[in-house]
Simulated assay, not measured.
Amino acid sequence: MKRIAFYGSSLLSSYWNGAATYYRGIVRALDALGWDVTFHEPDVWDRAAHRDIDPPDWARVRVWEGSLEGLAAEVTRAADADVVIVASGIGYEDERVIDGAFSAARPDAVRVFWDVDAPATLAMLRTDADHPLHRWLERIDMVLTYGGGDAVVRAYRTLGARECVPIYNALDADIHHPAPTEEKFFSDLSFLANRLPDREARVAEFFLRPAALRPQARFLLGGSGWDQGALPDNVTALGHVGTRDHNAFNCSPRMVLNVARDSMAETGFSPATRVFEAAGAGACLVTDAWEGVETFLTPGREVLVARDGQDVADLISDPTVDAASIGAAALARVRAEHLYTHRAREVDALFARAAAETAA
């Protein structure tokens, strides 16, 4: 069996870890293709206390102590794998994990840097000439990214990467699907995202401004870090919403909002995990405008696109919007074209080609 050592933030917890469902979808689909995946995650940021899932049967999970000693011991396990993946945003001494895992990998192993926040990583690399990734880009086999399109590919190639391929978010239809509605999630518009500095301004425009413009409408805000006291009276902050509740959260409101972070919106071609999770639940999705949205969903038929907060407010109050039909069309589209099985086949082919080139 083909073995992967995958070093990332967390497979078991989505707490302050937006990449969790992305990792789960990719790893589960790779397992179905015959890969034996061991996911190595540090015990940091209180994630272990907020697990969403138990260790699954489609991956081995090793939770290592968040210390230099724990890190040093864990990276040596990369030597057992045919493919060694180090993701960005691990959350503990990322630079040491990059150096340690890639150094421990066998000479014939495929080495991959998987960037789940390419705009942030690229910005860091431009300002930090001593970052170890500079030394590794020309030596490892490829960079895979959470998204970013041609702009990110060009940037990584300019920095020396042999190959850079975006592997976009997708849907795991066994996990995210239509579900019964729940009264606690009823609203006119719901939004789920942790509070982050480069998301603040766009959330204010696309979520809080519509709430102020439509005081009679009900708005729900899920995610960590939001202060109820600073929100309009018609906005309810739910706090962290575990993945077990995501389907009901997406199915219960009339519309579900997606707001890209500043860096993602500027780069384009980086649909968030939430886009596919909401569409996979049959939700009527409203998204802020970003380059490439039509690559994944057809505006006006499978998704509603808003240029600003006024557009969002107008959509909420427009009686001609058939939210159920838009949600059904989005569900059909993502199940046909944007499943994690589609993404995993692409990854599998990339690994096979890289292994053949190494052997040659």
Rank of each mutant, 00 (worst) to 15 (best):
P215M: 12
L285S: 02
G239A: 11
A289Y: 06
S252A: 12
P215T: 08
E266N: 11
A212K: 11
W226V: 07
V259S: 03
R261P: 01
G292P: 02
G222H: 01
F276T: 02
W226M: 11
W226R: 04
F206K: 00
A265H: 07
A217H: 04
A260E: 12
L297I: 10
Q228F: 10
A204E: 14
M255Q: 05
L208S: 02
L220P: 00
L238S: 04
V259A: 05
E266K: 14
V259W: 01
R244V: 14
A212Y: 04
P210D: 02
R218S: 13
R244T: 13
N258E: 13
T295K: 11
L231P: 01
N250G: 07
P253Y: 02
F276N: 02
A237L: 09
R244Y: 08
A211D: 03
A265I: 11
M255A: 12
N250I: 05
V286K: 01
G282H: 03
A217D: 09
A289C: 10
D233G: 10
V203M: 09
D227P: 07
L231G: 03
C284F: 01
G292Y: 04
F269Q: 05
D288M: 09
G268R: 01
D233C: 10
P215F: 09
R301N: 12
N234Y: 08
G229E: 11
R261K: 11
S263N: 13
F219Q: 00
D233L: 14
A237Y: 04
D288C: 10
G280L: 06
S224W: 12
G242N: 08
F206E: 01
M255D: 01
G223N: 07
A265T: 09
A279N: 04
G222N: 06
T295I: 09
D288I: 07
E291K: 07
P271E: 09
F249V: 03
G282L: 05
N250R: 09
A272C: 12
P253V: 07
D288N: 13
S263P: 05
L297R: 02
R214P: 01
T287I: 11
V203T: 09
F276W: 06
E277T: 14
L297N: 01
G300T: 09
W290Y: 15
S263Y: 08
